[in-house]
């Protein structure tokens, strides 16, 4: 019985490995993510961790084309893959995704209230980044907060 359970676990592991999309590092970063050419406009995206150190900019303000179903998460995914920057998220891409880390800076690394947030046109949306559909001319900022958003301009927890 013991032996059988060990084999079940091994087979489960193998299934997990092959069911998830296996890619080598080179393939992952050079992959053409099959994006359609039907661009509907441009957004400006930037990623910074200025709350940790002065001028710690991970991605400077960059203009990228978007198609009509692009979200704040998908453009982040695109720009970070293009620039070969590590990032980590929870949830399946497409549903409510939570961004845990960018460039090996993890949530909770700088205190209990720290983590990654995003703003669109200086507003902090209250929905998941993978559900926020972007429009032409939007300015998307991904920022690292150390105080639940209060230090980067989010007023949701202002009190």
């Amino acid at each position: 019985m013991k032996k059988r359970s060990i084999w079940v676990i091994i087979i489960l592991l193998i299934v997990v490995v092959f069911a998830l999309n296996f890619e080598t590092v080179g393939k992952h970063y050079s992959a053409d993510n099959g994006k359609s050419e039907n661009y509907v406009g441009y957004v400006v995206i930037s990623v910074d961790a200025n709350q940790i150190a002065e001028n710690k900019i991970i991605v400077p303000e960059t203009e990228i084309p978007i198609s009509d179903d692009d979200t704040a998460f998908s453009v982040l995914n695109e720009i970070l893959t293009e620039q070969k920057i590590h990032f980590d998220y929870a949830g399946v891409s497409g549903n409510s995704v939570y961004v845990k880390a960018i460039d090996n800076i993890y949530e909770y690394d700088y205190g209990d209230l720290s983590g990654w947030m995003y703003s669109v046109n200086d507003n902090f949306p209250t929905i998941s980044s993978s559900e926020y559909i972007l429009h032409d001319g939007d300015i998307v900022k991904w920022v690292y907060t150390r105080d639940l958003g209060r230090d980067v301009g989010d007023n949701y927890y202002a009190k």
């Binding site: 490995v17 998830l20 999309n21 590092v25 590590h86 980590d88 891409s93 880390a101």
Partner: peptide, 15 residues
């Protein structure tokens, strides 16, 4: 855990 700078391979989009 996907923490770390040395990426070996990617599984489901995560290192």
């Amino acid at each position: 855990s996907h923490h770390g700078v040395t990426e070996l391979f990617f599984l489901g989009g995560l290192p």
